[in-house]
Amino acid sequence: MDCKVIEQILTEALSLTEAHVTSDGSHYKVVAVGECFDGLSRVKQQQAIYAPLSEQIASGELHALTIKTFTPTQWKREKLFNM
């Protein structure tokens, strides 16, 4: 599955500020940034990512996902520390 398509699905479904998806074969890494994650537990954040992709996961089009979620404030801090 194309990474840009996954980014578009997630951005539209969750009104994300940023979405970055990379793949290594059948394994996908998702970095999602949005206000929608504010106050949610890690489990709820991951469920928010899985929900719009459930059709692709069920069909086997998406097999393995690594998910990192951030609020815009957390993302700014993350980028600052990883420069």
Score class of each variant (00 low, 15 high):
T66M: 08
I57Y: 06
V5N: 11
I9M: 02
L80P: 01
C36H: 00
K4C: 06
I6R: 09
E78S: 12
E61R: 12
Q8V: 04
S54K: 13
A64H: 07
E7H: 05
A51D: 05
V31F: 05
Y28A: 05
A51W: 02
G25Y: 04
A32P: 00
G25R: 07
D2N: 15
K44S: 06
E7A: 10
E7F: 06
E12Q: 15
F37K: 03
V33H: 10
L62Y: 05
P52M: 04
I67N: 09
T17D: 14
E18W: 00
V31H: 06
I9A: 00
H20E: 10
A32R: 02
T69C: 08
Q47K: 11
G39P: 04
E61T: 11
Q8R: 15
E78L: 09
E18D: 07
V30W: 02
A48W: 00
Y50D: 00
V21E: 10
E7T: 07
G34P: 02
G39D: 00
G39E: 01
V43C: 02
L62G: 08
V43H: 02
G60F: 10
T66P: 07
L53F: 00
Q46M: 04
D38F: 05
V33D: 12
L14T: 10
C3R: 14
L16D: 12
T22S: 15
T73D: 15
G60P: 09
M83Y: 05
C3G: 13
E35R: 09
A32G: 00
T69Y: 00
E55M: 09
L62Q: 09
Q46N: 15
A51I: 01
G34N: 03
V5H: 09
D38R: 13
I6D: 08
L16N: 08
P52Q: 06
S54E: 09
E12V: 11
Q8A: 09
Q74A: 13
T71N: 01
H20C: 02
E18K: 10
I67Y: 05
G25K: 13
A32V: 01
L53D: 01
K44W: 02
D2K: 15
I57T: 06
H27Y: 09
S26P: 03
Q8I: 03
S59A: 14
G25I: 02
T66C: 10
I67F: 05
R42K: 08
G39T: 02
Q56S: 12
N82L: 11
P72F: 14
S41P: 11
K4Q: 14
Q74G: 08
T11A: 13
F81S: 12
V43T: 05
